[in-house]
Amino acid sequence: MTATTPLTPVAGTVAAAARRGRRPRGLLLLAPALVMLLVFFAYPVADIVWRAFSEPHLGLQNLRDVFADPVTLRVLTRTVVTAFGVATLTLVLAYPYAHLMTVVSPRWRAVLMALVLLPFWTSLMARNFAWIVLLQDGGPLAKLTGLLGLGEKPLLGTAVGVALGMVQVLLPYMVLPLYSAMSGIDRRLLSAAASLGAPRRTVFGRIYLPLSMPGVVAGYTLVFVLALGFYITPRLLGSPQQSLIAQVIGTKVEKLLDFGGAGALSLVLLALTGLLLLAVSRVARPASMLGLKEED
């Protein structure tokens, strides 16, 4: 008793010191990433925002130009619609695929994972030129639509062609979060529901789908945001008729040296993305909580 009492405060301080010591070290580990973010993200973004309001002179004229120009608004709308379409199509393709990954043997899972990751290891330019070959008139895809009795549809230079290319490039960003969410689902819950007499559709709709929602939301958001900023694929697979907002920003910077105007457009895009993420964080939490609540 007497021997231990004086020890307790000592042990307490040691533990506290250890706790204190751990925190600065943790911060130290974070420091490189934080510095990087500041130098390569925060600073350039601040610079872009500043230019949007200061070039060629101080004021709101660049922002006003964005909203006053019908062409810019049309392209902006098209960009958002395309991003929604691409994200939805990607989800439809990726959901069953990710589910398959969770039910097959480890060896097949490795094969499926490699197939998803393959595009990551291939140059984006090589993939885009491969898509040109696939989509061009008389190419394999045109032949396929011909065989299906739809007639040989032109695909290269169309919105459909661009969407196909974008979906392929973005598929891994949907499959991986979905797989990670689905592999964490306790499969006994599904058996339990079935044993209690729930038909398969109910098991899927009331248990599996809600539990996989975090993956759906994460993947959908990621793909949507990435699709908003797509540049090379629409440039090569599309035509000027389907140009997206990144191409307009690119022209402003590269050809016109209009950093202010490009900055204002980027700002609008950034605000749009921010709003979307905000909306998603509102929608996602109740959804995933709902899925969990039903279990309890």
Partner: peptide, 14 residues
């Protein structure tokens, strides 16, 4: 260049 690009973009995306 500015004006021409603006007109061209308007025509192509129209």
């Amino acid at each position: 260049m500015d004006e021409a690009t603006k007109r061209w973009t308007a025509w192509t995306t129209g």
